[in-house]
């Protein structure tokens, strides 16, 4: 399957030097605004207060920090799974519908992007509060007899994070599904496969690159998530980003915070490498055949 590439206006191909030149601003931005600060922070973690790994030893010494890290991983997994379960049907509906219905669904998926994460998180706080809609509803229906604690719990954090990150799961899956030629499905049907088998043996394998792309986007974003856990969680459900911020802003312990950043970076890098080894990255993000 050949298609006109991005760098081929009127059939002329850009030289590789030209391509590099066009990409230079991007790499410069990444270098100045991301790599340089990150590396200088990480170097702080092994040079202060004295050269060596003392800050990392401190993380290992106290089981609490490890607990926070494990909890962060657990919440990120939970959010990814929930988002996947909710996103797949939505993406299927987006692909199979047309006209006003398609516009309607797409608008609903993209709508959250038009408001800030802060607003969406605050909205959850309003819904989940003690005399909020959810608690009122539970009592009217008769499930609970008095308001229960919904806000400032791990459940609140997971639900709100799933909501906030959902579009990042829907869009890659939608991209992958849209690229599956409808002929395949029809061919499988002609060969006698029922709807379930067609879904399991045609749609899912072909959508896998999009699914993996969505999972990795949501999972990695969830690992470093800050605002939602800070506003809807309690200190008992502290995640690593909140811990880092506390060390920076309250205790002014930059080297130790830098070591925590180092550990988080290590985890993110390792997970990304494993993913790209097991599933080929180029297929994953493009979602093309």
């Amino acid at each position: 399957m050949t298609r006109p590439g991005f760098f081929q206006p009127n059939g002329r191909q850009l030289s590789s030097a030209g391509i590099l030149l066009l990409m230079a601003p991007f790499f410069m931005l990444i270098g100045f605004a991301f790599l340089y600060p990150l590396l200088s922070l990480l170097s702080l973690s092994v040079t202060e207060p004295e050269p060596g790994l003392s800050n990392y030893v401190r993380i290992l010494d106290n089981p609490l920090y490890f607990k926070v890290l494990l909890r962060t991983l657990w919440i990120a997994v939970l959010v990814s799974v929930l988002a996947l379960l909710m996103a797949f049907p939505v993406a299927m509906a987006m692909v199979s519908s047309s006209g006003p219905m398609a516009v309607f669904i797409t608008a609903f998926v993209l709508l959250p992007f038009w408001s800030s994460v802060l607003v969406r998180t605050a909205a959850w706080a309003v819904l989940l509060q003690r005399n909020g809609i959810v608690n009122d509803l539970l009592q009217v229906v008769g499930i609970t007899s008095e308001p229960i604690r919904l806000l400032y719990t791990q459940g609140a954090v997971v639900v709100a994070m799933t909501h906030v990150l959902l579009p990042f799961m829907v869009l890659p899956i939608y991209g992958a599904l849209r690229n599956i030629p409808s002929d395949y499905d029809r061919a499988a049907a002609i060969c006698g496969a029922g709807p379930l088998r067609r879904f399991a043996e045609v749609t899912v394998p072909l959508a896998l690159p999009g699914v993996l792309g969505g999972v990795i986007l949501v999972f990695l974003t969830a690992l470093g998530y800050f605002i939602t856990p800070a506003l809807l969680g309690s200190p008992k459900e502290m995640m690593i980003a909140t811990l880092i911020s506390q060390q920076l802003r309250e205790f002014l312990d930059w080297p130790f915070a830098a070591a925590l950043v180092g550990v988080l970076t290590l985890f993110v890098t390792a997970i990304t490498l494993v993913f790209s080894k097991v599933f080929r990255f180029d297929r994953m993000l493009g979602g093309q055949l």
Binding site: Q129, R130, N131, R149, Y152, S234
Partner: peptide, 19 residues
């Protein structure tokens, strides 16, 4: 403890909302 509050605004809010 239902709420470990973080700011002065928040403590006012949890009082007003009966949190």
């Amino acid at each position: 403890i239902a709420v470990w509050w973080k700011t002065g605004n928040q403590v006012q809010q949890i009082m007003r909302d009966n949190e």
